[in-house]
Simulated scan of single mutants.
Amino acid sequence: MSMSRRKASESSPEYPLLGFLYFQPLHGYDLHKRLESTLGEVWTLPQNQVYNILKRLECQGYITPISGESESHTPNKQVFTLTPAGKHHFETWLMTPTPGSSKALRMEFICRLFFATQISEDLYSRLIQEQYHEIHRSVEYLKKKMEACPAEQVFNRMGLDLRIRQLIATLEWLETFHQICEEQLT
């Protein structure tokens, strides 16, 4: 998707929560524990915020409470499951490349890859390739902005140069990460 057509990054912790629910119904406490243990260095989220997000997702029709026990076997607690709308919302996010921003790549893209590896190797490989192209497009876009930026706008040029260098480093990281994951996943 072109940078000009894409709205701002959707770096929201709702997506990892929806992702965990994509595979099985869970209670808020279990969602928080799963988030901490698998993506805790990517997303830092207090437990009370998990419950607030779950309320919002329920109001939006993306999740619904069901009866049953949670993974921790806590009785009388709400266990949530994805609705068809929630599944569609998560899958749409999963298939959308992350824009070329270091923060968005660290949070969104790593999270997407985490869930993609659990769905299919083909999906995982496709996301890596699409992301590589998206970052490359972002670098080219920023280089054009740099060329058009007047020399006397030193701080604008410094900002653009830093963003370009970060994205080039991200492309190198992505190639290395892809090789490591390929070795571990096969």
Rank of each mutant, 00 (worst) to 15 (best):
T44S: 10
E69F: 14
V139H: 02
T64C: 14
L167P: 01
I164S: 03
E14R: 15
Y132T: 13
R6M: 14
A169E: 09
I66M: 07
S125V: 14
Q60Y: 09
P150W: 02
A8T: 09
I180N: 12
Q166V: 00
E152W: 07
E108R: 05
M3G: 14
Y51W: 12
S102A: 09
S125W: 09
L31C: 06
E182R: 13
L82V: 01
K33N: 13
Q118Y: 08
L127A: 01
K145E: 06
R163S: 08
R34I: 02
R6A: 11
Q129H: 11
C149E: 09
E140W: 11
L94Q: 00
S12Y: 03
R163Y: 08
I63Q: 10
G68S: 04
H89Y: 08
E14M: 10
H136Y: 13
T170N: 07
T186A: 13
S12H: 11
F177E: 05
G159R: 03
L35C: 09
M146G: 10
N76T: 10
C181S: 13
Q153P: 06
E91P: 00
D161P: 05
A169Y: 09
I53P: 03
F20H: 14
E172F: 00
A104E: 10
L94R: 01
R126F: 15
I168L: 05
Q179H: 10
Q118F: 07
L160K: 12
L26T: 02
M1V: 10
W173M: 03
F90M: 04
F115G: 03
E14P: 05
G19M: 02
F115Y: 08
L35A: 11
C111P: 00
I180E: 05
R56A: 14
R106M: 03
N52H: 15
R34N: 12
R6Q: 15
H89L: 15
E108H: 07
I66G: 11
Y62I: 02
M158P: 07
L18P: 00
K77N: 05
E140R: 04
G40D: 05
T117C: 15
S101M: 01
T83R: 01
T96W: 13
T176S: 12
E69C: 14
Y141Q: 13
I135C: 04
I128W: 00
F115C: 05
M158L: 14
C181L: 11
K103T: 11
Y62M: 08
L162H: 14
F80A: 07
Y15P: 00
W173T: 01
G61D: 06
E71S: 05
S70M: 02
I128G: 02
E134I: 06
L57V: 00
S37H: 13
Q166W: 02
K145M: 02
S67W: 07
P13N: 05
E91Q: 08
T44E: 13
N76D: 15
Y15Q: 11
Q78E: 09
Y141V: 04
R157Q: 07
D161C: 13
L123F: 15
R157L: 12
V154S: 06
L174W: 00
F23P: 00
Q49H: 15
L26N: 00
R34V: 05
C59K: 13
Q184R: 12
P13E: 06
T64M: 07
F114Q: 02
Q60N: 06
P65A: 04
G28S: 01
T96F: 01
Y29M: 15
E147N: 05
E69Y: 14
L162W: 11
K7Y: 02
L54M: 04
A116I: 06
M95I: 05
R106S: 07
M158Y: 15
G19N: 02
Y132I: 09
L105V: 00
Q78G: 09
